[in-house]
Amino acid sequence: MLCSEFSALELSWKSMPSFDKEYFSLGHLDLLSYQNTFIHRLDPRTKIAVTFVFVLTVVSFPKYEVSGLIPFFLYPVLIFSLGDIPVRFILKKVLIVSPFAICIGIFNPFLDTITLYTLSGIHISGGWVSFFSILIKFVLTVSAALLLIATTSFPGVCYGLQRLRVPEIFVSQLLFLYRYLFVLMEETMRIVRAQAVRSFDKKGLEIRTYINLIGVLFIRTMERSERIYRAMLSRGFSGRIETFRLHSIAQADVLVLLFSLVLCYCFRRYDIIGMLDHVMKGLL
């Protein structure tokens, strides 16, 4: 159901100016996190811990590892299906950041030319294998992070971090980031619109105007922060943001955590693909 809603949304985005589009797409990611599925109901701490263990395990593999990483795709697949998250939406986000990973690995094939495998006559150099390994690790870790955000409300993540004893100042920074990201984007959207309706052809859209625009945004942000601080003071703020929530670790959380730890350990320790291969050959 959500997927069809999503494609309808996507269609309507096509007709929007690009800034507005980005704004609504971010809002969409946020809305996803307010669904009510098994994954969404888990305690944020559990999800943070699982994501953390997952990412650590994935990056702990040596640089020529490819087959050992494949079983880890089970994790995103499970979250996508149990959490009712539109796959294309997340994959697009992964694609957007992919240039970073490509830049890191792109020179490996040129620098590392020792042949590691020969597949039906084609020599595959270590460079290509390690490049491929980097890409897989990238896709796994980034989608894990995005899935954490898509299945846990951002305040939930902050609350989890606070309970996991992350320093107060980082938590409050994150809370404000989340709260005012939307306000700031709206502010920017208004400025961009005001500029667009008074610009004709290419006139008024030069880099110079954008520099002014950033200046205006900066000043407005400063003024706003002043007003927000005033509002906080008038409600007795004294340096620490108190939060109130009665979450508790349920049985499901313990089970999910144990299950993920065991799976991560097994996938890291044993060559699952090799074993499958062995079993398949035995069957044949």
């Binding site: 709260r179 306000v183 706003r224 007003r227 906080m232």
Partner: peptide, 16 residues
């Protein structure tokens, strides 16, 4: 928007 700085309505009202 200046007054509501917490991530949820509940948290905001509970802040004071």
């Amino acid at each position: 928007d200046d007054q509501l700085f917490m991530p949820t309505v509940f948290d905001d009202v509970a802040f004071g």
